[in-house]
């Protein structure tokens, strides 16, 4: 089953998403935008060691990825999922702790930036190797089923670049073979680092792959929040209800560099005029204001509140101690007595 959702302006999807849900999602998008702008400026100011990778332009998709998950579900976020992570329960403070090198972050200085997880809220720590988290989600779901849990789903994301790895193929296939409640949300942001679509894949539509794997496939304009909520929310619901694995492919443009070190000068100017290349945060804001779901005053209030939350997360992390090499527990194993000791 392939389905292409209509745009928010169209009556069908408009009605499907109540405006309270739309606004709730918009606030998460706005938080993500303001927060990631702050991270980018900290990076430019030399306050962050290593890379900063943001999801500018992908907030609508990412918010929808987190919004429908519940306690007991599994999220394996990837590069551009700040919104999904926040929506599904990771506090901003854990992000600033990780980026700013506090030893109190969930990765304790052992891993950084987007490679962080937040296990207490069901969020796995990605490894860099694209596609590798898909089977890990499958394993979590398989184990939950073996333990007799019910009603859970697992969701992970991928880019159109990451969709071309062998790991993604194996992972997508094994999810279908194991019949686990799995949702894969792929964002085609048109560049894998600097490489455009025509050097990544040669099929007409990535969503067509759904059929080949035994998934249900859906295609959306990733700048259209209502469509994201309806389709991704629907996919989560279908999977949760025992449906086959779900593949959602969103069209959009990455409105930032691959990382903040990258000026994305390889993006052709004419591409930026495409409908799917617009800024989802601006579009959502316009629609919310136009429909009088939100007034300018309330919006201003949101911005003020969010900026205060962001500043607090940054300041708190900045005050905290960094990890110290001489105090570090240099042990990669949980079984102490099996640590290999190389004498000097």
């Amino acid at each position: 089953m392939l389905q292409t959702a209509k745009r928010a302006g169209d009556s069908a999807s408009h009605k499907a998403v109540p405006h309270e849900r739309y606004l709730e999602a918009f606030r998460w998008m706005l938080q993500t935008r303001i927060f990631e702008d702050k991270l980018a400026s900290l990076y430019r100011g030399g306050m962050i060691t290593g890379g900063v990778y943001i999801g500018r332009g992908q907030e609508a998709v990412s918010t929808a990825c987190g919004l429908f998950l519940q306690k007991g579900d599994v999220l394996a976020p990837l590069i551009r999922d700040q919104a999904a992570r926040a929506t599904f329960g990771e506090p901003l403070l854990n992000v600033t702790r990780t980026y700013l090198g506090s030893r109190q972050g969930s990765m304790r200085g052992r891993d950084g930036n987007i490679h962080r997880g937040y296990p207490e809220a069901g969020q796995l720590a990605m490894i860099s190797h694209l596609g590798a988290m898909i089977p890990v989600v499958v394993g979590k779901l398989l184990a939950k089923r073996m333990k007799g849990e019910e009603g859970f789903v697992g969701l992970t994301t991928i880019g159109e670049g990451g969709m071309q790895t062998g790991a993604t193929h194996e992972g997508m296939n094994i999810a279908a073979v194991e019949k686990v409640p799995f949702v894969l949300v792929a964002s085609n942001n048109h560049f894998a680092y600097s490489t455009p679509n025509d050097r990544e894949f040669a099929c007409a539509h990535l969503v067509d792959r759904a059929r080949g794997y035994g998934y249900e496939g859906h295609q959306i304009d990733g700048t259209d929040l209502a469509a994201c909520l309806e389709v991704i929310g629907g996919a989560v619901e279908r999977a949760r209800a025992g449906g086959p694995p779900q593949l959602v492919v969103a069209q959009l443009l990455r409105l930032a560099g691959h990382g903040e070190h990258d000026d994305a000068s390889y993006v052709p100017p004419e591409m930026k005029k495409e409908r799917w290349a617009q800024d989802c945060v601006a579009l959502t804001e316009q629609l919310a204001l136009k429909n009088n779901w939100l007034d300018a005053e309330a919006l201003k209030q949101w911005r003020t509140e969010i900026s205060a939350e962001v500043d607090k997360a940054v300041e708190t992390a900045q005050r905290e101690a960094a990890p110290v090499g001489s105090e570090e527990d240099w042990c990669a194993m949980s079984t102490r007595e099996l640590v290999d000791v190389v004498g000097e």
């Binding site: 590798a132 499958v138 394993g139 184990a143 073996m146 333990k147 992972g171």
Partner: peptide, 23 residues
């Protein structure tokens, strides 16, 4: 039985192990 997918077999085992199983 698994498909001929060594990467996914181990990935799945990792997820299951993190969830408390002993694959």
């Amino acid at each position: 039985n698994t498909p001929i997918s060594e990467d996914a077999m181990v990935g799945t085992a990792i997820g299951a192990a993190m969830e408390g199983m002993r694959p």
